[in-house]
């Protein structure tokens, strides 16, 4: 019984609504960046002959339309409009839901041409769960169980991206994956000036494969990070990992990185920056931290 309570306590450990307000802005404003800058190849599918469309299970099951030029362009502009409306924070359940559905369809358009990417599971989970928080104001320091649930499931999705990657390596590559030359192959195919030297250091990429799968298998431990400071350290570590990979093979997992930002205690920015009215929060230091009474659930 107490174990059940501690699990639900973890999922509903209250988090300041201000954090949701900040993260929501980041996540929804990232969508136009994703569409127009960092993942431009999705929109390029508008010009691909529809004979190259290879529907996914979900596309067949929901009978989603074949992405003709018109379908891709309409989904794109609806998505951009919806994301910008959602970024305002008004009617968050409506615009958050439409944004999630349109982004999901955008991803179906992205992944239905012979290659599925795995860089945005946590971001999709974030878009799915954000509308469930409802209204969240920038200055609302009240902590909310709904916000806590959003943080918890996004945290879980981030962790699973690593842990299940290890599982997939063992499933597809076998236990001997670590002794293969997967990283050598990656650097040969996608290497940069910052990584080509690794090919000349015998054993380096081999050892890196052990470190990588070791980290991925141990990733569930990251859920133990509950205090703000521990989570900040975790975020720095994860961002460092992704930056290193990016420097080496130009793969950044950017939507996943955006989801990671939800682990940061954005609500604490209010301590150093008083409100626009210039009113100092005299008791700034007593703004409750997420980790105070983290397990306190009625």
């Amino acid at each position: 019984m107490s174990r059940v309570r501690s699990v639900t306590g973890w999922f509903f450990a209250p988090v300041a609504l201000a954090r949701v307000a900040v993260f929501r802005l980041i996540a929804y404003l990232f969508i136009p960046i994703d569409v127009f800058v960092t993942t431009r190849w999705v929109a390029a599918h508008a010009g691909v002959p529809t004979e190259y469309y290879q529907p996914l299970l979900i596309g067949e099951w929901l009978r989603l339309p074949t992405p003709s030029t018109a379908v891709v362009d309409v989904v794109k502009w609806l998505l951009i409009g919806s994301a910008l409306l959602a970024a305002t924070g008004r009617a968050p359940r409506i615009w958050g839901t439409t944004t999630f559905l349109l982004y999901f369809e955008w991803m179906v358009i992205a992944m239905s041409y012979g290659k599925v990417d795995h860089d945005r599971y946590a971001f999709l989970v974030a878009l799915a769960v954000l509308p469930t928080v409802g209204i969240a104001q920038w200055r609302d320091q009240r902590r909310s169980q709904a916000a806590g649930f959003a943080v918890a499931v996004i945290f879980l999705a981030i962790m699973l991206t690593y842990f299940l990657a290890a599982w997939a390596k063992i499933r597809f590559g076998g236990w001997d994956w670590v002794n293969g030359s997967t990283l050598t192959r990656a650097v040969l195919r996608r290497g940069t000036d910052l990584s080509m030297w690794t090919l000349d250091v015998p054993g380096l990429l081999h050892v890196s494969q052990y470190l990588m799968i070791g980290f991925e298998l141990l990733s569930p431990l990251m859920l133990l990070a509950r205090r703000d400071r521990a989570r900040i350290a975790l975020v720095i570590f994860l961002l460092g990992f992704h930056l290193m990979v990016f420097a080496g093979v130009r793969i950044i997992f950017l939507p996943h990185v955006v989801a990671i930002l939800f682990l940061l205690p954005w609500e604490r920015l209010r301590r150093v920056r008083p409100g626009p009215a210039g009113r100092l929060d005299a008791g700034g230091d007593v703004i409750p931290r997420t980790d105070d009474r983290a397990g306190a659930v009625s």
Binding site: L56, V108, D117, L164, A168, K169, G173, T184
Partner: peptide, 28 residues
């Protein structure tokens, strides 16, 4: 769905397929 997608599924099951980036063993 996520767990069973990784254990039994493939990319066809997006978004629940296994995150198999660089999961294939490349022979030296």
């Amino acid at each position: 769905l996520t767990l069973s997608g990784t254990v039994f599924g493939d990319d066809y099951a997006f978004p629940f397929g296994p995150p198999r980036m660089y999961a294939t063993r490349a022979d030296p």
